[in-house]
Design a protein around this nucleic acid. Sequence first.
DNA 1: ACTGTAGTGATTTTT
DNA 2: TCACTACAGT
Length: 735
Amino acid sequence: MELSHILDNLNDSQRQAVSAPPSNLLVLAGAGSGKTRVLVHRIAWLVQHEGYHPNSILSVTFTNKAAAEMKGRIEELMHTSTAGMWVGTFHSIANRLLRRHWKEAGIAQDFRIIDSDDQLRLIKRVYAELEVDEGKWPYKQAQWFINGQKDEGRRAGHIQAPELDLYLRNMQRIYLAYEQACERGGILDFAELLLRAHELWLNNPDLLHHYQQRFRHILVDEFQDTNTIQYAWLRVLAGDAVPMTIVGDDDQSIYGWRGAKIENIQKFKKDFKDPSMIKLEQNYRSTKRILDSANQLIAHNPDRLGKNLWTEGELGDPISLYAAYNEHDEARFIVDRIEEWASQGNSRIDAAILYRSNAQSRVLEEALVRASVPYRIYGGHRFYDRLEIKNALAYLRLLSNRDDDAAMDRVINTPTRGIGGKTLDILRQHANEQNISLWAAAKDLLSSNSLTGRARTTLGGFFDLIQQLSADTAGCDLYEQVDHVIQSSGLLEHHAKEKGEAGQARVENLKELVNAAKQFETGTMPLSALQDQDPDLELSPLSQFLDQAALDAGDLQADESHDYVRLMTLHSAKGLEFPLVFLSGMEEGLFPSRMSNEEPDRLHEERRLCYVGITRAMQKLYMSYAEVRRLYGSETYNKVSRFIRELPQEHLEELRPKASLSIPVSSKPSQLSAKNNVEIPDTGITLGQNVRHKLFGDGVVTNYEGKGDQARVQINFENEGSKWLVVGYAKLEAI
DNA sequence: ACTGTAGTGATTTTT
DNA sequence: TCACTACAGT
């Protein structure tokens, strides 16, 4: 077979990685070094050169987006379908295994997956059941605890809680009751999928052996993001039988706070047999100055595997640093730069504004709106997370599995049908006492005539509604089922009644859900990246659709327009690239976050986050910080981020050179009026004078304060309307 | 069932 | 500051 297409157009290290013998291999892939390319080409190499059957390849990613991209590129390169290959996220692959082997895994055949929102609701119910005081032990803390334990592979029963450790004893109690509630409802949360998949191997040696025979090679993307249970799952599956190719970058590990173990990369080198390592250091994305800056920054971190990005490309522009007076000034500056860039014939889609925390987006958004610049904020609510969608899905879940308490809990009185708190209490108590699901409890109470009056009527009404919906939609197409459910349940009407535009939007979303169901069935799903149906399994379309909704974000396709700026957190920018990038809020306390100040490891992760941010930029990078920032209602005066100081100064261009207007002011901060015509000492500039600033244009000097090189001049700029703007160290010329 | 108010807490997020 | 929650009152 002609194989040149697999190895052509690769650089030396890429080619080495792709064509390495099929044994354990670690590919240390720097940002923008073509790691997906290497993974895809390696799969093609294994199949077309080493003669592996496509079915014997297992390729694991973290996000659906990455999995979808990989599938697409494999098909493009190999001109074959990826249908037989196992390419998916850890969670979707775990789900696929558990759907097949639910018996061996000891779970319900029709188990449903719940997201963290439903998980929290369930935990709240457990609290009520156990009469735990929420004030003492916040719900979120229990959720954090449970997920953390599962990520480490620990069950509630494994925990050794000393009698005096009240925290641990309480958490264990909650974890235990939560486990039971999940068991009762046939519910699996995200962490449980992974834990069960791991236990599946441990408890069923024959099954493990079967899959070790089946998979001849395992490939893992973003290995630095694996947590303990994911590593363990891979470790057991691979054993000494299945070689692995892992790709990762320790310098881009930014998810330690949610359990990712950066050391898993080093562990791989120790735990797996004869691993070889190849570094991909040639970068095809950024200019030399950007790469040099990133390299020098990350060099401040200890214990790196070590890697230096280089490029054959241009030196490029310096990194521009802007010291804004406050967050509004910063936002205005960024918007001005974008408009300047757009006016030079560039597209706004090529520009991204990145920030450390979501709270920062608001001011930026305001500035964009004021300047009528189109933008889109990334992150936040996923399609399947919206209230109305979750409600609709809960009805569908209940149709698929009556025992799904999380679903029942959500819709039993949505829309309101007069089932009051008292009735619910009775129902829950009965369910707990009998250790049965809410649905079973309702059935019990209704048939035993132990309810009276209104409670009986309303609960009976709900019971009949679900049965009726089920009967009505038997044999229907999926989309008809969805459509029927949102209408007959009264959900559509309920949301339509909501006042304002919100109601309208919700109705639209519900219609979009029907549409999504239609497209899901016909296999033309633009909402989705998943499409990970197991051809060997007979799962109802509804179940498949619900799995999809649980495991996939359902992100809408990018807009038709290519003229909007993108705003996102540094975390969600990982894996992306933009010609023009702004890193905003480069201040101590914000970035690095004050929460990371205590532990060195957390600070290192912040530094890696900055490294990720810098390496997103292809052509031009701006960084900015605000001297004063309003945060949580009070003004904070932050120092410039240490990360700025860690950059090579020769690649930095300060848009406000400090030296150009250093004002030795010995007097107290002044409140002098602009009319006074007082000279600011040693500057030759007087209050009331007209000045020109190279970025802001013309203005009037109206005040100064501070002393020494801390002095600030306050200038009222004409083009800023009546706004006051204080500019420190500004380069000014008199006009 | 809806509405008002007082209290609270506030990186980062995928599945 | 502000957005979200729990709870009390109608």
